[in-house]
Design a protein around this nucleic acid. Sequence first.
DNA 1: ACAATCAATAACCATATGGTTATTGTTTGT
DNA 2: ACAAACAATAACCATATGGTTATTGATTGT
Lengths: 108, 108
Amino acid sequence: MRQAPTTHVFRALADPTRRGIFEELIRQGEQTVHALTRYAGVSQPAVSKHLTVLKRAKLVRHRREGRETHYCAQPAALGAMVDWLRDYGAFWRERFDRLEEVLERMEE
Amino acid sequence: MRQAPTTHVFRALADPTRRGIFEELIRQGEQTVHALTRYAGVSQPAVSKHLTVLKRAKLVRHRREGRETHYCAQPAALGAMVDWLRDYGAFWRERFDRLEEVLERMEE
DNA sequence: ACAATCAATAACCATATGGTTATTGTTTGT
DNA sequence: ACAAACAATAACCATATGGTTATTGATTGT
């Protein structure tokens, strides 16, 4: 059974270790697998597998540079999630007000 | 290892069948397990288990009425996801513009 | 009273998942 | 040339997951 892209994104971010890796890439920018392994608290192969899952969801992109591989976040893939929330979550107010503030700050 | 509430929400919505049940509850409002089973395309026990997972994430609430149980969506639990997106997804523009449109329409 | 309906639980199963250690293939520094 | 470093892959393992059928408990209609 082929998975819809939305499901790929949701599933990829469902695991806390994997979400942590993605968050780290957002915060710190491009990182090598080595650096991410130091951060993640699991083995290097585990990190590589997580990165594969994130890559399948298009949440990360990689760039080879000699013996090291640099990964960076591609937050555009979060679009699927934002769209879904707009469709199914926007009925409910409040939290979106705070999001609106963020948007206003972004206008500056 | 205890799971953070954010992880509960992400995990609950990662499964397509479960997400479908939640979407149905958002769209159609309160439903009995029976009605959801007709919709979901899996067995009644499977639906019950999915509802348990959604309940753990506080995405649904239930109300007993005689022999039937009525479930309804609690979209407030999506707040965890919106917050997370604001923190890690808001760096990136475009899709948020469309979300902004939604917010503007909601002003009316 | 009793058959039927509804929903939860139990018991089970196959597969997916998240982790490990070991290995391999490159690339790099000396 | 060669040892070390980096990252991917292989092989493996325990447990979680998503499904099933069977059963149970409660409620309802006749």
